[in-house]
Amino acid sequence: MKRFLILWRKEVATYFLSPIGYIVMIFFLVVMGFSFWLLVNVLSQGTEGGAVMNELFGSIFFWITLLIVAPVVTMRLFSEEKRSGTLETLMTAPVRDTEVVLAKYAGALTFYVLLWVPTAAYAFILKMFELPGTPVDLGPMYSGYAGALLVGAFYLAVGIFTSSLTRNQIVAAIACFALICSAFFAGFLPYLVRSPQMRDALGYVSSVMYMMDFSRGAPDTRAVVFHLSGVVLMLFLTVKVLESRRWL
């Protein structure tokens, strides 16, 4: 546990020691700020109980941001260590493979959460300009955050997995992007198939549909199970890849 914390702290610190961390933060806040502006626009036109948090947590901007941020945040994790040879110094220190994978993953997830922190200001702004008689319901915002965390956690886990496969950061990023894009587009399949059984089945693996529920303020435990099992699978595979140098 102690070694996990030491490794985790180093991973988080590394994000703030490289320009990429700041570039991602700026990009993220610009897009989220734009999404918030859209949300305020919709509100100012006056809607009746619509799922307005969709603008923040279900829009195409949200998804594109996530699809770009996840590979960029994770591409470095193992590829860079492999390329520079520091994996050798790291793995010859008395640390377990699992500890290293979990610490790196936790570091990426921490950075991802920190990306979202400034958007908490939106909640305050909404509350501040709340009109008397039309209270702003922040419930959907909380569940929207929960959904963003779940989907993000899954995408980051895919990213750490692809990063463990190669010593080239670009390859890792593109492989992660391809995988999570496939997962994202598969989320639209329920709209395309005709048979209702198929639609139900595909609905279980559709992050897009889950996110729509979450941003309506209707979180679904199936989403939790789906995304967390995805995380576990990806981390398990990452540990196996890391171990694989001992298989020969």
Binding site: S18, G85, T86, E88, T89, A93, P94
Partner: peptide, 24 residues
């Protein structure tokens, strides 16, 4: 190891303390 792999973005003390703690 050969060619001394290090984390280029860290400071010397920072790196050595990290390594010391990692070794318990």
């Amino acid at each position: 190891p050969e060619n001394v792999p290090l984390y280029p973005e860290m400071r010397v003390d920072e790196y050595l303390m990290f390594r010391a703690q990692l070794r318990g």
